[in-house]
């Protein structure tokens, strides 16, 4: 059976991308293998584990449940795009401080979900964080340190009072 090839033009982490993608290629595979942005991980390929979470046009989505061709015209952020060249962001610093990662495989998805959530709602409470992060599976930490880290990172996402 045939597939089709399509031009896809989008932005990843602020950089323009203009590529040809196969119709059946998922966005996660496109990012990882075509664009070599391997920070986005793939843990189940059927939309349950959340490891492949990225941000498209401001919204956290599962990149394994999106076709690469569907990304045409959008702005994408991956874990590489929320990281500094040196050192850690406040969210990453909080993850490290609270030991919110062990093997680190689910971590990019956790960070992207938390980043999207805190950007939308820096005042979210513990229950709200647990609710949102319940779409990301971690097998190592038992989640408790992750919740602590996200709670602590809220401060960095709050807009200055007098701005």
């Amino acid at each position: 059976m045939p597939t089709s090839k399509h031009r896809a033009v989008f932005e990843v982490n602020g950089k323009a991308v203009d590529i040809e993608v196969e119709s059946r290629t998922t966005l996660s595979d496109c990012l990882r293998h075509q664009l070599r942005l391997t920070g986005t991980h793939v843990g189940c390929e059927h939309g349950v584990c959340g490891a492949c979470t990225i941000i498209i046009d401001g919204a956290a989505v599962r990149s394994c449940l999106t076709l690469a061709v569907q990304a045409d015209g959008s702005q994408i952020t991956t874990v590489e795009g929320i990281s500094f060249d040196e050192g850690l962001t406040p969210l990453q610093t909080a993850f490290r401080k609270h030991h919110a990662l062990q093997c680190g495989f689910c971590t990019p998805g956790m960070l992207m979900t938390a980043h999207a959530l805190l950007t939308e709602n820096p005042d979210v409470d513990e229950e709200g964080i647990r609710h949102v992060l319940s779409g990301n599976i971690c097998r190592c930490t038992g989640y408790i340190p992750i919740i602590q880290a996200v709670l602590e990172a809220r401060a960095a996402y709050k807009k200055p009072e007098n701005a």
Binding site: G39, L88, R96
Partner: peptide, 19 residues
């Protein structure tokens, strides 16, 4: 001691086998 591994893993710079 905060983990040394975290500096890579938190920035998407791990090297897992499919990477």
């Amino acid at each position: 001691v905060e983990r040394l591994e975290d500096l890579r893993l938190l920035r998407g710079r791990g090297r897992f086998v499919d990477d």
